[in-house]
Nucleic acid binder design. Structure first.
Length: 492
RNA sequence: CGGGGUGUAGCGCAGUUGGUAGCGCAUCUGGUUUGGGACCAGAGGGUCGCAAGUUCGAGUCUUGUCACCCCGACCA
């Protein structure tokens, strides 16, 4: 019997881990802080990749690939950037092993020490900009719009499946532009691509906004973010897009001849989302029964469970399922017939629910006699019987309805947990209860830091497209004048 | 790096004042079942994290050591 999944507010990460394991998405890796993504989980990631890649290409972005190893000297050129990542890098120092001369086992060959250490990329700005230097001579070479899908390594002290693993899969876009305006526009464009993807494909509402200086990417002049609310009210930064100014252009000496003949440094952006999105997906929609997947990302959209006693009944049901399956596949719907004969229907029902399959069809002799079929939807856990002849026609709209319904559910949940707050005592209490609080902030890093130390809450963003309140007020903590409200929350 | 905890079967755990290792799930075999996580009967599976010590005898006591987990610090 599967482990019972019991969400408890005080132990949310345990619940989260249980769902990941039970739904067969991933398991703990043999390597500390890393993760094995299992086939069912990876199928979701592949879908995310495919869809997002298409969206990037529509904006003119092309894919490329850059090396995993970054020579230490490249990495250390941009001072702020290195300061941000230095504490969490895996470093290659040798290139050979040997048998231990004093006994059993394998040791590092001391003669194989590298002259210059290689850093396993925690992000690729440095190596990409050392390459861009060779690609850029004239304003005619710009813009360069490259993206790569790859893995990166960040040696975090504390890890969590999907949210913060030592190694993770992501996409990183790196663009070079002739003007600051164009780069800023690109950074903004990409954060909106992310927001659109989250809303339309993941059924996950996000707040688009700007990071405060404290929370900015190392080496960026401006960081744009999408912030999502998980079901425990905590915030999850789900994607970021950075305007890097000329910092990397200058550090890596990327200059180009402009239209007027002058030499200019290139302007940069970078933007990325990772397998953390899968964590967001799990924590946005899951319930006591396990995963709830938005139909547009579900590896299996419709699962069919035959119910039978005799072989004749099985054959009759299977024939009907194959017919339905063929018709659904013709409509582009992914279908699985669960014809495993060693498991009882009840077991299969429970298993596919844990895995979050949006729609389940059950068919037995009883239904066949009445020319009907049982249709179950995962989001509401409800089932109804409908005429067999209608089922193929109705499923596409049912999938759309589920996609929309779980978005609405998440949106309603967020709406009931975001509020304005102008009183410090109230702030301290509500922020602990998983609320997003819209508060005035005086704009200083000192105040933000003091609030963080007092409550663990941080400024998730200064909203740009929703929850925008540009009005005069007083800072929630310092009482100093403020021009706008920002989003405070406790984050993962 | 600080505070706490755990190492016993694939997984989750129990193991009394030291007496030679057990339960649930899973697995395998046979049968009956199959419309919401089946039941019965039987079987297989463990150098008790590692090392040393005390003892006639150590899963249990002592010392050392290693690993992992949780909380914090850290987390563009």
């Amino acid at each position: 019997m599967a482990k019972v999944i019991t969400p408890r507010a005080e132990d949310y990460s345990k619940w989260y881990n249980d769902i990941v394991v039970e739904a067969d998405l991933a398991e703990q890796s043999v390597v500390r802080g890393c993760m094995v993504i299992k086939p069912y989980g990876f199928a979701i990631w592949e879908k995310i990749q495919n869809v997002m890649d298409g969206m990037f290409k529509e904006t003119g972005v092309e894919n490329a690939y850059f090396p995993l190893f970054i020579p230490k000297s490249f990495f250390s050129r941009e001072a702020e950037h290195v300061a941000g990542f230095a504490k969490e890098c895996a470093v290659v120092t040798h290139h050979r092993l040997m048998n231990d001369p004093d006994g059993k086992g394998i040791v590092i060959d001391p003669d194989a020490k590298l002259e210059e250490e290689l850093i396993v990329r925690p992000t690729s700005e440095t190596i990409i900009w050392s390459v861009y230097k060779n690609w850029i001579q004239s304003w005619r070479d710009l813009p360069i719009l490259c993206n790569q899908w790859c893995n990166v390594v960040r040696w975090e002290m504390r890890t969590r499946p999907f949210l913060r693993t030592s190694e993770f899969l992501w996409q990183e876009g790196h663009t070079a532009h002739a003007t600051a305006e164009e780069a800023q526009e690109r950074a903004e464009q990409m954060v909106h691509v992310y927001a659109k993807f989250c809303r339309e494909w993941m059924s996950m509402p996000v707040i688009v906004g700007r990071k405060s200086p404290n929370e900015r990417f190392a080496g960026a002049l401006d960081t744009l973010t999408i912030e999502a609310m998980m079901q425990d009210g905590k915030a999850l930064q789900s994607g970021t897009s950075h305007f890097l100014g000329q910092n990397f252009g200058k550090s890596f000496d990327v200059q180009f001849a402009d239209k007027d003949g002058s030499l200019q440094y290139a302007w940069a952006t970078s933007w990325g989302v990772s397998t953390r999105l899968m964590g967001a997906l799990i924590m946005s929609h899951s319930d006591d029964e396990g995963l709830v997947l938005p139909p547009k990302l579900a590896p299996i959209q419709v699962v069919m469970v035959p119910i039978y006693k005799t072989e004749e009944e099985f054959d009759a049901v299977l024939a009907k399922f194959k017919e339905i399956s063929k018709a659904l596949k013709a409509k582009g719907i992914s279908v699985k017939i669960d014809s495993r004969d060693t498991l009882r229907p009840g077991f299969k029902f429970a298993e596919w629910e844990v895995k979050g399959v949006p729609v389940r069809l059950a068919l037995g002799a009883r239904d066949l006699a009445k020319d009907s079929i049982e249709v179950f939807r995962r989001d509401t856990l409800s089932k109804k019987t409908m005429p067999l002849k209608d089922v193929v026609e109705r499923i596409p709209s049912l999938l759309d309805e589920i996609q929309e319904n779980i978005y609405q559910k998440a949106l309603d949940f967020r709406a009931s947990n975001v509020e304005k707050c102008d009183n410090w005592d109230e702030f301290c209490e509500k922020i602990q209860n998983g609320k997003f609080l819209l508060c005035h902030w005086d704009g200083t890093p000192e105040t933000e830091q003091a609030i963080k130390e007092a409550t663990k809450a941080t400024i998730r963003c200064i909203p740009m497209d929703s929850f925008v309140y540009e009005e005069d007020g007083k800072d929630i903590y310092s009482g100093k004048p403020s021009k706008q409200r920002v989003v405070f929350a406790i984050a993962y």
